[in-house]
């Protein structure tokens, strides 16, 4: 068994979190709040060192005064603390959502639409190509909202949902495998790093 105090701290917190499998209890609550508090403090420190200092303080020290405009705009977020002026926080919010959508739309059209569309157009009669084409067409039909899923459309959509479920099954198996390896990692920590039972 290890004498490293930090491994002991990790073990205690791991067991506190595992205790929620029984039911909610003070140990779990302690670990949960410690986790939230520590990550929040870490995020604040990270923002200070990676955003505030390099992107505001240092450029201003180098006389890049143009940054005062976005800085003031960003500070409007804090108007939420003053109920009468809270409406001002909508401006930076609208700016962030508007620019974000504007930037992402062409990228989405290029990457998620045109490139996928191009990849779906088949050029040879192979089994995988046919599966791809039928899968895309039937799945797209399932997500067509303007007609009721009845008759031919209903049948095509039904095939589409089969394709969706098969792909979900594959994704489920793949991800469960990854999660099991996370659990194994935790047990390795307990049995190897802490108890030294496995080498």
């Amino acid at each position: 068994m290890t004498h490293d105090i930090w491994i002991w701290a990790g073990v205690v917190l791991t067991l506190f979190i595992f205790s929620s499998l029984y039911k909610d209890n003070p140990f779990y609550r302690f670990a949960e709040r410690l986790f939230i508090g520590a990550t929040l403090g870490y995020a604040i420190a990270l923002t200070w060192h990676n955003v505030i200092i390099p992107k505001i303080v240092l450029p201003l020290q180098h006389h890049e005064y143009i940054l005062i405009i976005p800085l003031c705009f960003g500070l409007l977020y804090f108007s939420r603390f003053f109920p009468k002026q809270a409406w001002l926080s909508r401006w930076p919010m609208a700016f962030a959502i508007g620019t974000g959508t504007g930037i992402s739309l062409p990228l989405v059209i290029q990457a998620s639409l045109f490139k996928q569309l191009q990849g779906t157009m088949i050029t040879s009669f192979t089994f995988s190509n046919i599966v791809l084409l039928v899968g895309v067409i039937t799945t797209l039909t399932y997500f067509f909202f303007s007609t009721e899923h009845k008759g031919a459309v209903g049948k095509i959509a039904r095939i589409g949902i089969w394709f969706i479920m098969v792909s979900f099954g594959a994704a489920f198996g793949y991800t469960v495998m990854a999660r099991v390896s996370l659990l194994i990692g935790r047990f390795q920590f307990l049995l190897h790093d802490w108890l030294g039972l496995i080498k």
Partner: peptide, 28 residues
């Protein structure tokens, strides 16, 4: 979505005939 379906079908028919004109339309 109907337009997308149309392009997939027409592009595939052209592609199977050895014509890549529709496919190359979406080269970015």
């Amino acid at each position: 979505k109907l337009i997308v379906l149309f392009f997939i079908l027409v592009g595939s028919i052209f592609g199977l005939m050895g014509n890549r004109v529709i496919i190359s339309l979406f080269n970015i």
